[in-house]
C-alpha cells in the first residue's frame, strides 16, 4: 500500500505527459482524418489516390514500425531532427488519422444523398452543404466509432515509452525496477489508465445524448 501511495504522484506526472501527447495527437489526427476523407470523396483522381495510399500504408504497418521509422529513420537523415515528443505526437497523429479517415469517410457516405440534393437545390455551395448539412449529421453517427478509435490511440501512446518519452509507462518501468514492487506499480498504472478511459467513455455518451437527433 505504501508503495502505491508513494508511486502515485510520480506516475500521475507521467499521465500528464500521456494526456499532453494524446491531446495534440487526437486534434492533429482528426484533422488528418477529415482532410484525407474529403480527399477520398472528391472527384479529383490524384487526391483520391494519395489519400487511399496513405490510409493503406498506415493500416498495413504496425504502430511500432511507424514510430521507429519516424523517430529513428527520419532522424537518421541529415536534414531532419525531431525530438522525442514531436516524433511521438507525429506518429500517433498519423496513425490515428488513417483510422479516423475511414471512419469519417464511412460517416459521410452514410448520410442520405437527398440531404445534399436538398441543400444544393436551395443554392448552397458544396462547401456550405458539407459543413452545415452533411458533417453535422455524419459526426453524430460517427461519435461511438470515433470514441473507440480515440481510446485505442490513447492506449497506443503507451508505446512511446520505448523511445524514452517519460509517460506513465516509462515511469512505471523505472519505478518498478527501483522499488522491486512490479505488482503494485503496474496495478496502479492500469487503474489510472482505466479511470481516464472510463471518463472518456462517459464524456462521449454525454455528448451523444446531448446532440442526439430526435
Amino acid at each position: 500500500m505504501e508503495t502505491i501511495v508513494a508511486a502515485f504522484p510520480y506516475l500521475l506526472l507521467g499521465m500528464k505527459v500521456t494526456l499532453y501527447i494524446f491531446f495534440f495527437s487526437i486534434i492533429f489526427g482528426f484533422l488528418i482524418g477529415l482532410l484525407t476523407a474529403l480527399m477520398r470523396l472528391t472527384t479529383i483522381k490524384p487526391l483520391n489516390w494519395i489519400a487511399k495510399v496513405f490510409v493503406d500504408i498506415i493500416r498495413g504497418t504496425p504502430f511500432i514500425v511507424q514510430l521507429f521509422f519516424i523517430y529513428f529513420g527520419l532522424n537518421g537523415l541529415e536534414f531532419i531532427s525531431l525530438d522525442r515528443t514531436v516524433a511521438g505526437i507525429l506518429t500517433v497523429s498519423i496513425n490515428a488519422g488513417a483510422y479516423f479517415s475511414e471512419i469519417i469517410r464511412a460517416g459521410i457516405l452514410s448520410i442520405d444523398k437527398g440531404q445534399t440534393e436538398a441543400a444544393r437545390s436551395l443554392g448552397l455551395t458544396k462547401v456550405q452543404t458539407m459543413r452545415t448539412i452533411v458533417l453535422p449529421q455524419a459526426f453524430r453517427t460517427m461519435l461511438p466509432t470515433i470514441t473507440n478509435q480515440s481510446i485505442i490511440s490513447f492506449k497506443d501512446t503507451s508505446l512511446l515509452s520505448i523511445i524514452g518519452i517519460a509517460d506513465i509507462v516509462q515511469r512505471g518501468k523505472v519505478h518498478a525496477s527501483t522499488t522491486f514492487k512490479p505488482f503494485e506499480v503496474w496495478l496502479t498504472v492500469g487503474v489510472i489508465y482505466f479511470v481516464i478511459i472510463y471518463l472518456m467513455s462517459l464524456l462521449s455518451s454525454f455528448i451523444e445524448r446531448r446532440y442526439k437527433i430526435k
Binding site: D112, G114, Q115, E117, A118, A119, R120, S121, L122, G123, L124, T125, I133, P136, Q137, R140, I213
Partner: peptide, 20 residues
Amino acid sequence: INKVRENVGMVFQQFNLFPH
C-alpha cells in the same frame, strides 16, 4: 449554378428535411 438554384425551388418525394 448556385445563383440559378436560388431562383429555382425544389420539393422532393422524400421531403429531405434536415433532421438535425
